[in-house]
Design a binder for these strands. Sequence first.
DNA 1: GATGAATGAGCCTTCATTCAT
DNA 2: GATGAATGAAGGCTCATTCAT
Lengths: 208, 208, 208, 208
Amino acid sequence: MGSRERRAREKKNRKEQILDAARKLLLKDGLAMTSVNRIAKKAELSVGTIYFYFAGKEDVFAELQREGLEILYGEILSKTENTDSPEKKLTDCARIYLHFSEKHSDYFDVINYFLSQPRIVFSNGVKKSIDEQGAKILKHMEQIVVEGVRGNLFTESRPGNFAGFFWASIHGLVQVKKLRGTVIESENFTDFYMYGVNQLIQSIRRNQ
Amino acid sequence: MGSRERRAREKKNRKEQILDAARKLLLKDGLAMTSVNRIAKKAELSVGTIYFYFAGKEDVFAELQREGLEILYGEILSKTENTDSPEKKLTDCARIYLHFSEKHSDYFDVINYFLSQPRIVFSNGVKKSIDEQGAKILKHMEQIVVEGVRGNLFTESRPGNFAGFFWASIHGLVQVKKLRGTVIESENFTDFYMYGVNQLIQSIRRNQ
Amino acid sequence: MGSRERRAREKKNRKEQILDAARKLLLKDGLAMTSVNRIAKKAELSVGTIYFYFAGKEDVFAELQREGLEILYGEILSKTENTDSPEKKLTDCARIYLHFSEKHSDYFDVINYFLSQPRIVFSNGVKKSIDEQGAKILKHMEQIVVEGVRGNLFTESRPGNFAGFFWASIHGLVQVKKLRGTVIESENFTDFYMYGVNQLIQSIRRNQ
Amino acid sequence: MGSRERRAREKKNRKEQILDAARKLLLKDGLAMTSVNRIAKKAELSVGTIYFYFAGKEDVFAELQREGLEILYGEILSKTENTDSPEKKLTDCARIYLHFSEKHSDYFDVINYFLSQPRIVFSNGVKKSIDEQGAKILKHMEQIVVEGVRGNLFTESRPGNFAGFFWASIHGLVQVKKLRGTVIESENFTDFYMYGVNQLIQSIRRNQ
DNA sequence: GATGAATGAGCCTTCATTCAT
DNA sequence: GATGAATGAAGGCTCATTCAT
């Protein structure tokens, strides 16, 4: 009775152990250097064990992506509940996304990896859980837009579209960060970023 | 004298020869499968020769990126010169970018590669020429905005910022394409994309 | 008592269950891809269980070989009982062997595997049962020869030898199938095969 | 001038060096244990170097097969030129084949490997040179049969077919060697083998 | 009886890069 | 200028087998 539970717990732990190692490597050496062999070494497990718990390399990363999205969702949720203003909420979302890309650059790189990679095939379950996690975030943003529309602050007939657009845009903005000072003239990236965010909101702001 | 010219021409040819091979491989097998050894085989040159003309693998890709940006610039230029309306011009830029990402997906992948890759060190000259090429595109967009402002259609005090923001956004939008139908609800991506583009323009449109 | 029976039956079932899985994999993916782990997964059993019922991987295959030989024996038996002519009986044996190698290519591959593999150690019982199964087939052929000799159709003082020789030869012929059109000139393999079989019989045919 | 020659010679030597190692491993540990990594280690070369000279693992083995067939051909040629009797020549061919399978068991295993392996794809050139080598052997046997027919010793209208059949049969006989004492009753394998060979010849021997 | 987690050596192959010629 | 042989670490992954529970 207790045995089965313990088994399950241990299994959970092993997975966590592997993901911990992967996360650390990701943060330290970047995605390209995070191979299964190195994860195994870092986790003090055998390669075989990694493959016992994960279908493959991409599977590990996929799990990390899910994790990252979960964290992001949590942060967005907690930081936007104390505000009434939908506009401020959206701004906060964007601010959090930038902050997330800096503080959790490991997770962000993974998200970016899957977004940039030409073609990756997921086992169905994995894909679904990632999509769900991502959808939750977009749903939340959509909800903020709906609030704003109800409060006569925003004018937008397709809040779902806007949410997707909003996220895609701030993702693009974050990605462009490394070009500051050259292609992107502004040396102060945060300024530039917040300028962009403001424009995005401006595009649905109801004119008085 | 004539000899020196021939030398220079041959050298130019060699570089072109290498880039041709790289381009073909890129187009056929994608970025991941385009290794120096394969380029050499395709170009019917020795690996050593590649390294004589290029500092390394990334250097070859960088050159391709410059090429890609050049093509993109050319397309933008030619497609936006027949219009007067700045708004239409911007819309066309966006349309071209999407089209470019589809038709020249090889080049687009390279651009994406350098944008997503955490940290790459370029030899100075290469970086400069890429930046210049990229800057030219942004400068062109900036100019369109300036036109719009002059014509009292747009209201924007920092057209340079807007150009950067505009490009970052449409890049993000294009990247998000593969999520259509899941995270991005809209199944018709072009609709979604053009919706976003419209929002972007809306954000600087002067209210009547 | 009843319990013991059930035990035995379940045990039998487990073995069957494992062999079923192995057989399916063999048929679907070939011998090389049929690993213990995959068998376990297919059989919905744990790897450990496989090792409880079988000494190892080779043991499973050995059992399949026995099975294959059993099937072969059955087919030979049933197809040769309606004929009187010993010559026709031998021809039929050969025909069946070729057919078997095509229709039951999975089983044939296993037989071939053990025949080609330099050195494999079997647990004694397994080896014995295989040998018995194989011997039964040869015994049957030998019997046909004896018949022929009695009927004054064949002349052969060592029918056991001939049976072994006959089988070895047709096995060699079947194996050589993949060389048709190159090393083996004849494009029509069945023609070539039946030519060989006829020669074999010719070698014991009594001259009139 | 001399440099190019030396290059070519060294290249030849390297290939030989690799094949030497492969051959040794093959003889010592068998085919299954002869991996590219082990070949490299044995040859005191890097893995990469193996792949510089051979397209892959199968390519190395293919070359060995060609080598083996060449040796076999040489032996057959030299041992059958001092005889006049076609019958003795055929018997000698068979004797040599058995001897070859024992003395050059490494080469024989490779031949057997390619014959038993369900499906192997060769680069075209390799396949061709193997086939040619094999065909040469069969052609030689065919010639012997033709001689016999001319000398009124054999009666055979399709000597090409017989050559293929002859080789397939003796190959099958050799393969069955490991079953001596069980399925193959005869404990003295050479007796059994020569019995078979005699039968084969008997099948084309003209009756007096 | 049965489980399934764990091992880790081993598989084939590709890679960017160097350097003597 | 150009060659191409050589490197060897690293890649992802599979394997038969063991063993504590």
